[in-house]
């Protein structure tokens, strides 16, 4: 990946120098071992900080939406002739571009407001999984080299295979290369294993209603309502989330299990045709709630009923956002 990093820095530096973009959202090295963290680069000399590796976890489309919204709010009281445009550069892999497509389809901003620096992706490390892989020991230092993750831990040196600690969503990713881009860094990465995409869901579907409900309530019991999942999600961009509305108040703010379930269920339903399986919500969850099981079920239904894969192309509009009077099957309304 080092070659890609060098090219990425060069390209980012050029874009800033030529004033093609106002800011570049990318990743830099984190302060903890085996981490990378989002960063915002505005000066060409700072592009040296940029990294691109298997530790880059967050879906940066979230920040694209945030920055554009902030900018638009700041321009509200500016005279039309003085209004300034802001162009956001973003380092984007497959799932990031899917989220950008969703934003564009939902008309959150114009295509000319975002400059997409496409990067190939062969998956990222599951941050919680790797801790489990080393038996819960403290990871003091780590590096990825030749398909191996080498670590110094509080229980001595440990090595695990990269493929064993790959995040679940990356393992079965269908779109690991950018779908749209303004510039592409490096050549496309080899395909992952999309055929296994719904294996977990199929197993889950095979269970009884009681078992599925038991699994759902068990997972929801872990939730502490920190809202990290919602905050990290590029598709969760409502200016005020329904859980924060107070007139009327839709859900209680306490620890009552039903309130937590209502929050999560509502979020899940809002993800229909909008979840790109980037894994951000799962990676940020401090308690390890298995949100993916439910999101993938919705994703599978969405594909089977409407043939839609969220954000997979600019033309394929999200099922809840399109109306086709000749082909919509509406029998279910009359024959439930």
């Amino acid at each position: 990946m080092e070659n890609i990093e060098t090219k990425l820095r060069e390209e980012a530096s050029r874009l800033l120098l030529e004033k093609k973009v106002d800011v570049i959202i990318g990743y830099e090295k984190g302060t903890l071992p085996l981490t990378a963290t989002p960063c915002f680069i505005t000066k060409p000399e700072d592009t040296e900080k940029l990294v691109w590796n298997n530790l880059c976890t967050q879906n940066l489309a979230k920040y694209v939406h945030d920055l554009i919204t902030q900018h638009k709010n700041s321009q509200k009281r500016v005279k039309p002739e003085d209004k300034k445009k802001k162009i956001i550069g973003v380092v984007a892999r497959g799932c990031t571009t899917r989220s950008l497509i969703i934003h564009l389809q939902e008309r959150q901003y114009g295509r000319d407001e975002v400059y997409i620096i496409g990067v190939p992706c062969d998956g990222y490390i599951d941050g919680k999984g790797i801790k489990v892989a080393v038996g819960g020991a403290d990871i003091v230092e780590g590096s990825i080299d030749g398909g191996q993750v080498k670590m110094q831990t509080s229980d001595g040196d440990k090595t695990v295979a990269f493929r064993d600690v790959l995040a679940d969503n990356c393992r079965t990713c269908r779109f690991n290369n950018p779908i749209i881009s303004d510039v592409m860094i490096g050549s496309p990465a080899p395909a992952m294993n999309p055929d296994a995409e719904y294996e977990d869901v199929k197993e889950f579907e095979g269970k009884s209603t009681e078992e599925r409900w038991a699994y759902f309530t068990k997972e929801m019991d872990k939730c502490i309502r920190c809202y990290a999942c919602r905050q990290a999600c590029p598709s969760c961009y409502c200016p005020t989330c329904f859980v924060e509305q107070s007139q009327p108040q839709w859900v209680g703010i306490g620890e009552d299990p039903s309130d937590t379930q209502v929050f999560q269920l509502m979020r899940l339903y809002h993800m229909v045709g909008r979840c790109v399986d980037c894994g951000s919500c799962i990676s940020v969850c401090p308690m390890g709630v298995d949100l993916r099981k439910f999101l993938k079920k919705i994703d599978k239904d969405c594909f089977e009923f409407f043939g839609n894969r969220a954000g997979s192309s600019m033309e394929d509009m999200p099922p809840l956002g399109k109306y086709d009077e000749h082909h919509d099957k509406q029998d279910f309304i009359f024959n439930p």
Binding site: C39, F40, Y63, Y227, A228, Q231, A232
Partner: peptide, 12 residues
């Protein structure tokens, strides 16, 4: 800039 505005740090 990169803060998600979640409550993880304060809840932990």
């Amino acid at each position: 800039g990169k803060c998600l505005a979640c409550g993880t740090c304060t809840y932990m």
